[in-house]
């Protein structure tokens, strides 16, 4: 956050385009580098949520699984807000 960003926020203007460019690039590169199709990523996301849901009750709407990239390393990042822990895990 820079002085300009704060000023832009105060007067309700868009953030500077360089920041927008950086965020868009990081997102698109995470996908380019992992070479995962959106469908596969979505399928993986749903399966991960289902596994986690066996142990804890999670907020399915808030849960996000995304790709992030730093130093040419791509990471799968899951952010799953836990509502409560299940007393007895659901097992098959």
């Amino acid at each position: 956050m820079t002085l300009r960003d704060i000023l832009n926020k105060l007067i309700g203007r868009q953030q500077s385009s360089a920041n927008t460019a950086k965020e868009r690039l990081q997102l698109v590169l995470a996908h380019d580098r992992s070479d995962l199709s959106p469908e596969l990523l979505d399928q993986m996301r749903r399966e991960i949520l289902n596994v986690v849901a066996k142990y804890v009750e999670i907020d399915m709407d808030e849960g996000a699984v995304s790709l992030e990239t730093e130093d040419r390393m791509t990471a799968l990042v899951a952010n799953l807000p836990i509502k409560r822990t299940l007393k007895t895990p659901i097992t098959e």
Partner: peptide
């Protein structure tokens, strides 16, 4: 343009491309 944050900075690019 970099100073007015309307262009990716040198650090932005080197960070991204490593």
């Amino acid at each position: 343009m970099i100073a007015s944050q309307e262009m990716l900075s040198v650090n932005d690019v080197t960070d991204i491309l490593a």
